[in-house]
Design a protein around this nucleic acid. Structure first.
Lengths: 215, 215
DNA sequence: TTATGTGAACGCATTCACAGCC
DNA sequence: GGCTGTGAATGCGTTCACATAA
């Protein structure tokens, strides 16, 4: 088998994708450190997993190493990027410019990986028209039209729980099919829309549970 | 079996704890809506899971319903709170008062569930001494002493990736054993410290992967 | 009859172990 | 000899199906 990334043959587990993301970060560190070769053992040690896990994860997408030698850092880095869809830029809007939305708007992690924030939206008339970090805040009502002119790939939802489902419906109606939500509720979207939720409340409760159940 | 929450007999899956968190949110909504009784089917419909899953999740902690009738909303709500460790207050500090840290400092979700932010810390001398949302920003160096006087349960890490491990080490050295990190790197802590990481970069890449691999 | 609680069956992710190649 | 790639074995979370109780 060659070293190109093949399209995944079967559905990839969420846990696998999460680890690929970690591997990419480690590989970039190795690259910065000037290393040219890395083994599955070294990648595993860094990520708190096993070498077999690393090899299995990679095997879903192809064959990237050389037996007896390991992986070429630069080559594997690039493959990870391609697999994760990071070789292109993603056009992102942030809906809801409260504290969280505003913080996200200038989150370096966005820009770094090619997630370009191209628009801010809010329903508060007091905010609409103002600029935040060099980006004008627009009314959510103009979303459909804006999206026709300059299609958006991802909408980040940073509005209160009570408004979240309504906003998501508007985003979907506007034709945007990638959503990242920070609202602490369960959202519903059509099957052709990809939704990823970071629920802070849930994460806190997970920590609370863990702390309560230690011996 | 009675309706009290028993201590879990075996290790509880992460996915189970996440769902308990959802159930609690739904139960609170049902309570607000004035419902007194709920079935596993109704809870499942709301959370996008199955009734068997709901019952299995609950069964790890005891027996909470009545056959043929369902669950008492108020009673089950309280049980969920107890199980998740939400019947007490948690003393929280936020380390790193950049954009994310500042946004977190006044995140309502914290207060709402009994996570009381009692301190802010930063390494930037320009920030130390100032007040943010009525809380003074202290130097990270005073953490050990502060923690002796007023023990802290949870430290929220909101510093850049490059500083995160060092800060975590300081937090651990100060005697704090619950950590919630927002730094986009893999952190290492002793076994007796509970660490929960929200990695925004990873979540974005997960979305990017999903969007790239739709047909 | 209705809906819970739970052992058993199932399916999927992880781990094992070794054949294959450098 | 060293390390990858991968079928097979294992372990674990989810689903099934039914006995049990209201």
């Amino acid at each position: 088998m060659n070293s190109q990334a093949a399209p995944p043959l079967k559905r990839i587990a969420d846990s696998t994708v999460r680890r690929l993301s970690l591997y990419l970060r480690f590989l970039e560190e190795f690259e910065t450190a000037g290393l040219t070769t890395v083994s599955s053992d070294e990648l595993a040690a860094r990520g708190g997993t096993t070498s077999a896990q690393v090899r299995k994860d990679l095997s879903f997408f192809g064959s990237f190493g050389k037996r007896g030698l390991g992986y070429q850092v630069a080559e594997l880095t690039q493959s990870m990027r391609r697999i994760l869809g990071l070789e292109r830029d993603w056009r992102v809007i942030i809906v809801g410019v409260g504290k969280i939305g505003a913080a996200l708007a200038q989150f370096e992690g966005f820009q770094q990986r090619g997630f370009r924030v191209v628009g801010l939206y809010d329903s508060d008339p007091a905010k609409v028209g103002r600029e935040i970090y060099h980006l004008p805040v627009r009314a959510i009502e103009s979303l459909s039209e804006d999206n026709r002119e300059q299609p958006v790939d991802i909408a980040v939802i940073a509005v209160p729980a009570s408004a979240a489902q309504r906003v998501v419906d508007q985003v979907v109606a506007a034709g945007i099919s990638g959503i990242m939500s920070f609202a602490p509720i369960q959202l519903h979207v059509p099957a052709d829309v990809t939704l990823n939720t970071v629920n802070m409340a849930m994460e806190l409760e997970r920590l609370s549970f863990a702390l309560s159940n230690r011996e």
